[in-house]
Design a protein around this nucleic acid. Structure first.
Length: 611
DNA sequence: ACCTCGACTTGATAACAATAGT
DNA sequence: ACTATTGTTATCAAGTCGAGGT
């Protein structure tokens, strides 16, 4: 195999995209130049993941250090033993978030808190309602502020320590090559933050002991030393799996792993394989579509359901939708859709409304093929009612079995990759061939947006409304919009009641403010660009005069130095039409509001503590 | 033919670092 | 130079899917 010295970043800039991706292996700074390993040219047999494997094992979180701050029970300070204090502190830390507003979260937390209290022989704390965690919360806030105020040297020291840890645990030797390890830290204890209506949210996630951990490592390799006084649960040498360590999580009985990083050869190879599979589907998609379209009218219900599901997965990029257990949030995918998740509106509109992965709402009104509409109507026919499976004769297992008979290795998720990639490519084809960098970026972002729409990817405005926040929000608005003092006198009033409604109203107001700012920014840039153009033209006309020439020869004039950056950016700026500005604003609206506000609030909190 | 378990990917989001703006 | 904004990386919950047991 031809080997080549890895090249510098500057050289990479001149190379084709493929090469740049290949060169993306990063060795720590100051590393010796290593010979490049072209994993993407390696054969794709991945049943054996490695021949030799050496690593430093997982890194455990530091033991809990008590702070001694007392919480209150029924108005009285209570002394807590170490373990109880730790759990109380987990809860205190998120006091202002709306995890605490969630009844399930509170109850699960308190149940586990009481268990720990019992072990610590504490029989004072009995009712959640009498608990007051705010002293601990306040303490944590102060600690946070202190951390921010650390000196540069202290911050550097912390950074260096982190780097030396990373040097030890962040790398492994896979077949003798140095590769990056991903999540080498054992997950620290805390309160399980299940998403959506997870029945176990708030449950105490216990500290993982080395005795629960299995190490997977090469036979020849030195076995990493477990923490003092501890032993590994098990040490194995299985080259058929890629993980370095594993343990079982006490909350869901889920198995957790330590894997290599996303940019490692192993992950790279399987990623490549995934996309190659999606490309392969392109060759078969016509045949597969013809086949399931024919099956839409099959006599056998199971086959009809399968065909209909395939249509939805293909057309809407729905997830396969495995069955879920009792102890999980009630979310669905294609195969697990229920009666209540779709509404049929003749002649052929289907309204999807359900919670998908991460309890993110999928809402879509779509026109479907007439036969699909007919089928869905049949699948909803009585005696079916709310709570019943729409595809009652279909499981993901059966679906995938059929898919792999149509094309080797084909499963439901391949359609998502395929359709996302296809959409992305189609959208990129609209890039202006000789457009500016700005225009190209715009096209790229638009393509990404289209994929996000297809796959229903959405980042939500973070929840977690703080009680204190409302007050701060009001202060903030007054600070930013001084004229509101007159027009909105109620903002000056003392807050008596922290109603959710009030919070969202103030937030909306802030969002409007943000959007106005954004629009002004765009318009100003447009203006600047227009002016610059005019200036350019006029300066070109008078360029002949000697003084002008001399001035330009004087390297850069002062104000040119100052506006250098701005100018550079303006060079790429495309003058937007009113409609484009409108579109950009609409896009901005989705993300405007909370994130920038949150930081401002944090700053104000800091000012408060430091003044 | 189910059902559970194990391994791995996916995706939201929180935390941090880099860059732009004043 | 200091701070606001934006981009990147780390974290971890929540999916997918095949294998192997009953």
């Amino acid at each position: 195999m031809e080997k080549k010295k890895s090249t510098s970043k500057i050289e990479n800039g001149l190379k084709s995209k493929e090469d740049v991706v290949g060169d993306a292996d990063e060795l720590g700074e100051g590393e010796e130049e290593s010979e490049e390993y072209k994993w993407w040219l390696e054969s794709v047999d991945d049943s054996v993941k490695w021949q030799t494997l050496e690593h430093s094992g997982p890194l455990f979180p530091p033991p809990y250090e008590p702070h001694g701050v007392k919480m209150k029970y029924d108005g009285v300070e209570v002394e807590l033993k170490k373990d109880s204090e730790e759990v109380a502190t987990f809860f205190a830390a998120i006091l202002q978030t709306d995890y605490v507003k969630d009844k399930t979260f509170r109850e699960n937390f308190f149940k586990d808190f009481k268990k720990i209290l019992k072990k610590d022989k504490n029989n004072i704390i009995k009712e959640y309602e009498k608990c007051d965690f705010t002293p601990i919360y306040d303490y944590l806030q102060v600690e946070k502020e202190k951390k921010k105020l650390l000196t540069k040297e202290d911050k550097k020291k912390i950074k260096d320590e982190k780097a030396s840890i990373d040097l030890k645990y962040g790398w492994c030797l896979l077949n003798g090559r140095k590769e990056k390890v991903g999540n080498y830290r054992i997950e620290p204890p805390g309160l399980f933050r299940g998403r959506g209506m997870h029945p176990l949210t708030g449950t105490l996630k216990l500290r993982v002991q080395p005795e629960q951990v299995t190490i997977n490592i090469g036979e020849e390799a030195v076995i990493p030393t477990p923490p003092d006084g501890h032993k590994w649960g098990k040490v194995q040498h299985d080259p058929k799996v890629s993980w370095l360590a594993t343990w079982k999580d006490n909350v869901n009985d889920n198995i957790k792993y330590i894997f290599l990083a996303a940019n490692s050869s192993l992950k790279g190879q399987s990623d490549l394989k995934k996309f190659e599979k999606a490309r392969e589907l392109k060759k078969h998609i016509h045949r597969i579509r013809t086949s399931y379209t024919a099956e839409l009218t099959d006599q056998v219900t199971a086959i009809r359901q399968r065909a209909t599901a395939m249509y939805l997965i293909d057309k809407l990029a729905l997830r396969a939708g495995n069955e879920k257990g009792e102890d999980e949030a009630d979310t669905v995918g294609c195969c697990s859709l229920r009666y209540e998740h779709i509404t049929l509106e003749p002649p052929n509109t289907v309204i999807f409304d359900f919670l998908g992965k991460d309890s993110i709402r999928y809402y879509n009104e779509v026109q479907v093929d007439a036969q699909v509409f007919k089928n869905l109507k049949i699948f909803k026919k009585e005696p079916k009612k709310e709570g019943d499976q729409l595809f009652d004769r279909l499981t993901t297992g059966q679906l995938n079995k059929h898919l792999s008979s149509q094309m080797a290795g084909l499963t439901g998720k391949v359609f998502r990759t395929f359709n996302a990639s296809f959409t992305f490519q189609q959208e990129l084809l609209k890039t202006p061939t000789n457009g500016t960098v700005q225009e190209k970026i715009l096209a790229y972002n638009r393509a990404n947006r289209q994929v996000a729409v297809l796959c229903n990817h959405q980042r939500s405005i973070p929840k977690g409304v703080f009680k204190l926040e409302l007050k701060l929000v009001k202060e903030l608005i007054l600070k930013l919009l001084p004229k509101a003092k007159k027009s909105r006198p109620e903002l000056l009033e003392e807050i008596s009641d922290f109603e959710e409604e009030e919070v969202s109203r103030v937030k909306k107001e802030y969002k409007l403010f943000e959007m106005e700012k954004f629009r002004k920014k765009l318009e100003k840039k447009n203006e600047d660009k227009k002016n610059e153009k005019i200036k350019e033209e006029t300066s070109f006309a008078t360029k002949e005069t000697k003084s002008e020439v001399r001035k330009s020869k004087k390297a850069l004039s002062e104000d040119e130095v100052e506006s250098g950056k701005k100018k550079k950016e303006l060079d790429d700026w495309v003058i937007l039409t009113e409609k484009e500005i409108e579109n950009e604003c609409k896009e901005f609206e989705k993300t405007a509001g909370y994130p920038s506000m949150k930081e401002k609030l944090e700053k104000m909190t800091l000012e408060r503590y430091t003044s």
